[in-house]
Design a protein around this nucleic acid. Structure first.
Length: 559
DNA sequence: AAAACATGTTTCC
DNA sequence: TGGAAACCCTGTTT
């Protein structure tokens, strides 16, 4: 950023921003509100309040007479550049800039620390606007719509302990995960580079990476319903692949960029994908708002591309209703999730449009009844619609939860627990870190979406990275996480443990172990400057089995 | 040890 | 409309 000019009374004070170094000298002082700045403090402060428009001119005209005063900015906030406070980590606790809206709920007037949604055991639920009709009649009504909803919820079994992990299985950040539909120990993973990993996590050292299928982001994959050794994948390279998991032999169903690179305005990328087995279709959607249908028997596109989201916007998610093959759910960067009737697919013909505050990362029907809808939006809210047959004008619940967009991260997606008969357990990684005994960790949250309660937060002191990609096993009590370039398998700490009641289920993993002492929680980096190869540092492509008491050196235990 | 910086997408203007 | 800024709880290299 350009140096910031501040118009004081007489001498213009220029703060060279490149001296960002100061922020880190946090160790020296704590509460001292007096920075050792020069004399012109108050004038500076004044100017600061209303300036901002004179930055340019100051830059241009005062180039030479500007005396860059490199203030010893021990107290200048790196976020807003004002003094008197300082954003950043203090130990393992992040202090927000008070000038910014709350990092969690995005509302002004408070910081994350004091956010009303940051209660110890829950992130908070915002009842949707139309939710004031919360009469008992309403419940009766909804009960009629969903007669199969169990009256008493079964207790959740939450995987909470790292069972095994593979470090740098991928050479880029993990972008998607999929459990094998029939083989219990097989996990598939895709990464930013387009590689497809096949991992038998009971044999940690057996793993396969197919690197030639795609050459950029593998956005979504699905098993072929009629052959569970075959996987479809949609990639930002504009192709759909169909790969045999045994041989790695892959064919391409579709290539939206047959002429190769002709510039960013024409390069089409495939994001959302799902399979409609009833109709024998692979559905994919691109970054320009279009949906494509591919017949899985002929491997040919059927019909024309259909504009299903705002023209030019990315359609990141597609989901076919598990029970009603005519229903399709899509979501994308136009801030909408949309419900479609497959029999009447044309631009503008959506049955419902579900508005969101920001980009919608994911939208899913509930896995068993297909009656509920769960969305993850970049406005830090998980939204739930309890019945697709009910009032869809506003969500039944909005659950505030930190899963912001970050350039280094795969977008977070809240995922259903496919095993939960009540369809109320959801897993989602958390962006903001919390101080757990001195370590800044990013838990993976289990949320009861019927109440908004945080049922469990899963973490390990050795895992300091953010885990935006999570998937619960369709049959076992197993959680798979993709975090940075690593994959983790979590299982319950002790299977013989009596199942706890739902409200006592707060789990803090290894809270007493504090080996990890890092300022930052970590991120799933995709820094292109680091090497792609699996051999670049010797530690790449190594797998590690973690015992029940994990003290793995491999898990980048820092100090 | 500390700082620079690479990186990509959305939103702002 | 297009270009610039914002992001600001990285990870890696310098």
């Amino acid at each position: 950023m350009a140096p910031r000019t501040r118009r004081g009374s007489f001498p213009r004070v220029v703060i060279e921003r490149d001296t960002e170094s100061e922020k880190s000298s946090s160790s020296e002082e704590e509460e001292d509100p007096e920075p050792e700045v020069q004399e012109e403090e108050e004038s500076e402060e004044l100017a600061e309040v209303e300036n901002g428009e004179n930055v340019e001119e100051g830059l241009g005209s005062k180039k030479k007479e500007r005396v860059p005063i490199t203030i010893a900015l021990t107290k200048v906030c790196k976020v807003c550049k004002r003094k008197g406070h300082e954003a950043g980590f203090k130990g393992a606790t992040y202090i927000d800039c008070p000038m910014k809206p709350c990092f969690l709920c995005k509302m002004p007037g408070h910081t994350t620390m004091t956010c009303p949604h940051k209660v110890a055991t829950e992130h908070g639920v915002i009842p949707a606007p139309n939710r004031n009709t919360r009469s008992s009649l309403d419940y009766v009504f909804r009960r009629q719509l969903q007669p199969d909803i169990p009256a008493i919820k079964t207790a959740f079994i939450v995987p909470n302990q790292v069972d095994c992990a593979v470090i740098r299985y991928h050479s880029r950040r993990v972008t998607c995960l999929e459990f094998h539909p029939t083989n219990n120990n097989i996990l598939l993973s895709g990464d930013k580079k387009g590689q497809l990993g096949v991992w038998d996590y009971n044999k940690v050292h057996e793993k396969t990476v197919y690197g030639n299928i795609h050459h950029c982001i593998l956005n979504n994959m699905r098993f072929k319903p009629t052959n569970d050794e075959t996987i479809y994948a949609a990639s930002s390279d504009g192709t759909i692949s169909c790969t045999d998991l045994e041989t790695g032999i892959s064919s391409s169903l579709m290539n939206l960029n047959p002429n190769g690179w002709e510039g960013p305005s024409t390069w089409r990328m495939l994001y959302g994908m799902d399979i409609n087995s009833e109709k024998g279709l692979v559905l994919v959607a691109d970054n320009f708002g279009f949906l494509y249908l591919v017949d899985t028997r002929s491997n040919n596109q059927t019909g024309e591309a259909i504009l299903i989201h705002k023209k030019g916007s990315k359609v990141v998610g597609l989901h076919c209703n598990p029970l009603q093959p005519e229903l399709l759910l899509s979501c994308g960067n136009d801030h909408f999730a949309r419900i479609w009737d497959m029999r009447r697919l044309e631009a503008g013909s959506s049955l419902h449009n579900l508005p969101h505050g920001r980009v919608v990362n994911a939208a899913y029907f509930s896995p068993q009844s297909g009656c509920k809808i769960l969305t993850t939006s970049q406005d830090n809210r998980i939204r739930v619609w309890d019945s697709i047959f009910g009032n869809l004008n506003s969500p039944s619940r909005e659950i505030v939860h930190s899963h912001d967009f970050n350039r280094h991260l795969t977008p977070f997606r809240a995922e259903w627990d496919p095993k939960d008969p009540a369809e109320s357990l959801v897993v989602v990684g958390r962006y903001i870190s919390e101080n757990y005994n001195g370590a800044a960790l990013h838990p993976i949250d289990f949320i009861d979406i019927s109440t908004g309660q945080l049922v469990a937060e899963v973490m390990d002191p050795n895992i300091t990275t953010i885990s935006p990609v999570n998937k619960l096993h369709p049959r076992d009590d197993v959680l798979a996480s993709g975090s940075s370039r690593s994959l983790f398998i979590w299982r319950p700490r002790d299977k013989s443990e009596p199942v706890q009641q739902k409200n006592e289920k707060k789990i803090v993993l290894c809270a007493s172990e504090k080996k990890t002492r890092r300022k930052f929680g970590g991120v799933d980096s995709d820094n292109d400057s680091d090497d792609d190869t699996f051999s670049s540092k010797g530690k790449n492509f190594k797998s590690k089995k973690l015992g029940s008491k994990p003290t793995p050196k491999s898990l980048r235990t820092k100090r």
